[in-house]
Amino acid sequence: MATLLELKNLHTYYGQIHALKGIDLTVNEGEIVTLVGANGAGKSTTLRTISGIVRARSGQVLFNGQDVTQMQPHDIARMGIGHVPEGRRIFPQLTVHENLEIGAWNVKSKKDIEERIEHVFQLFPRLKERITQLGGTLSGGEQQMLAIGRALMAMPRVLLLDEPSMGLAPVLVEGIFEIIQRINEQGTTILLVEQNALMALEVAQRGYVLQTGKVVLHAPARDLLADEAVRKAYLGAH
């Protein structure tokens, strides 16, 4: 398997706070990799640093062998890194259709855009019913579908998913995880950040455990699920 995304000794600060203290991580083409860990461990910061929203102070982000560490967020997005941000961040006053069109910002052909919108509607038929509604009027679950659909519009090679299950009813969470697997089967590599570590490790091939800005454990997801310490700390087992 070819390495698609690689982080090398990545350090990120928020002002004085040292949020990432040397993260090393690889994501291979076709994989689902998950980052688990407690609140404030640096999971979201890792994704935000990859996308360029937060600048790394040192270290490297390599995408497909190319150093993207110092690139602008919109250029990183253009290279094929899709990011579904925490809290979905739907454009509240754009319609569902417009939100999806924005997702395909760098796609020139209108025909391609409409085809991709149709593809998103196949994944999320519910969105089609809401096509003329403003994003801000959707329910939480619908917004999550829209956020994922919007990111897929650019046909990214790797999709960064930040807490896709947050705030959703358990029934919807199952649905979202099924969709994540389907997207992966259709050829998109996925880096998944989740509070719901159990679900995340069930769909992922490999997992990284983050603690206060460092990778403390890294193993096949199956092994992490079986690991007593991990179960105790992150999976709510007693």
């Binding site: 996308s51 360029g52 929203i53 602008q72 967020p73 919109h74 997005a77 253009r78 990011h83 941000p85 961040r89 454009f91 509240p92 006053q93 754009l94 417009e98 069109e101 924005i102 997702g103 910002w105 760098n106 919007r150 650019a154």
Partner: peptide
């Protein structure tokens, strides 16, 4: 399309950048 981009940037600059928009 450009007008749509301006509206997106007005509503959420960070997310607009994640969509590949040059803010």
């Amino acid at each position: 399309k450009l007008g749509r981009g301006i509206r997106a940037v007005a509503q959420d600059q960070t997310t607009a950048a994640l969509m590949g928009i040059n803010v």
